[in-house]
Simulated assay, not measured.
Amino acid sequence: MIDIELPKLNNNDTSYELVEWLAEDGAEVATEQPLVVVETSKAQEEIDSAHGGVLHTLVEAGQDCRPGQVIAHLFETRAEREAFVVARVPAAEEPEAAGSDLVITKGAQALVAEHGITEARLRGLGRTLIRKADVEALLAEPTRTVAAGQELSPSQRAVGAVVGESMRTIPAAAAYAKVDVEEALALAQRLAASGAGFVSLSEMLVKAVARQHATHPLFFSQLLDDSRLHLARTADVGITVDVGKGLYIPVVRDAAALSGEQIGDLMMEFRVKARRASFRASELTGANIMVALHNADGLVLATPIVFPGQTCVVSLGGTQEELVLGDNGSPVVRRHVFLGLVYDHRVVNGRDAMAFLQSLKQCLESPDSLLDADGRGTAS
């Protein structure tokens, strides 16, 4: 017998939902055959079988499960599995009826007869061993009611767990910078008009943040304990994406090596996947810094949390307009945003935070520095 353990799919989750078995209980499965679909707080992940054999499931579709939990067994033969099933039936619940693949205990059979439950409904449970408790649960389904109060979705519960851990474990501080983005927005418009690709202020900020990795490595580090840090080799930037179907934070890996246009293509792909809820877990893990986009119209600034395992998060507020005096003394309208920086004060001091923000400000106020010789988003 081989145990099938649920792997850890998302560092921020302590439990998942088993969405669907892709092979029936009691079926023969092959090595690398798709076996089960599990939903984390952010994505659905398909898990393949690492071995071949006869499947015996332990967790039903729709139930919660945790990383490392044994969710099924694989047996070499059907006879070996049947012997296992019979051995697990308590003496008080010896099999009363058995078909080719369906075993019903005495207590369950009495309820089945009393309520006229069909074999089709029993098979709908997705189990080959039907106990009294299984039938009772089946009978309770039509009258099941929601407890008083609205339940949080699994996704929101996961968000709550992350926020709680951040607030408990990370002594965060914050700083803000006002950034003139007139030149950056004009550059984005020129790039779009020339057909060089879509590069908005968000893409420029991701590029600018990634560029800080070489000179500000602490902001991309992970605190291992009270005295040790892990310094990241590349800038892997997580970006908040919320299109009304939940918050996702996909990762732009080695963002400093990508052009602004490449980052723009990735962010467009992220938005599409957010609408379809089609992210894989691997696309949502591994960030060592985060950019939180709070750039809706009218929103001035935001103070997001620092994700556990990271050291800082940069926030982008909405674009504001103000009347200022131009070089000739005449009033002109200029556009600006507020950048926020929330950081783990155990790793980063205020002086370093101000230097980091000032560098970002310079990049966005002189956006040509983010372009290569061809006028496209540089990859260096």
Rank of each mutant, 00 (worst) to 15 (best):
R123S: 09
Q189N: 09
P304M: 13
L125Q: 15
L22T: 03
S100R: 15
K178M: 11
A235L: 01
K207T: 07
H213S: 07
E114L: 13
A161R: 14
L22R: 02
A257C: 06
R78C: 00
A98D: 00
T105Y: 07
L138I: 10
I104D: 03
G318N: 05
E203C: 09
H336A: 15
V89I: 14
L229Y: 02
E24D: 15
V314A: 05
E5R: 10
K106L: 03
E141I: 06
D64Q: 13
D344R: 13
T40M: 06
Q33V: 02
T234H: 08
R144K: 14
A140R: 13
F198C: 06
L22K: 03
V70N: 08
A23L: 06
V135K: 01
A61I: 03
G318C: 13
P90V: 02
Q63P: 00
A256M: 05
G99V: 00
E283C: 12
R88V: 09
S200R: 06
Q222H: 05
T215E: 07
G126K: 15
T118W: 01
G329Q: 09
L111M: 12
S282M: 06
V206Y: 07
V29Y: 02
G244P: 05
V209Q: 11
D327W: 02
L138A: 08
Y248F: 13
I4N: 03
F279D: 13
L341M: 04
N12R: 13
E321Q: 15
G309K: 10
D25A: 01
E32C: 02
L201W: 04
I117D: 03
V324H: 02
A255Q: 06
K42D: 10
A235I: 01
A158H: 01
R376Q: 14
D254Q: 11
I263D: 00
T145E: 15
V112Y: 10
D225Y: 01
A232T: 05
Q44W: 07
A110F: 04
L125Y: 12
V112K: 09
A186T: 14
F219G: 02
P304E: 08
T319Y: 04
E93H: 12
P171N: 10
P90S: 12
N288Y: 04
I4Q: 04
H56V: 08
K132T: 05
S49R: 03
V59Q: 07
A50N: 05
Q222K: 09
G68C: 05
I104T: 01
L102D: 00
H51I: 03
H230I: 02
V206H: 04
L371T: 08
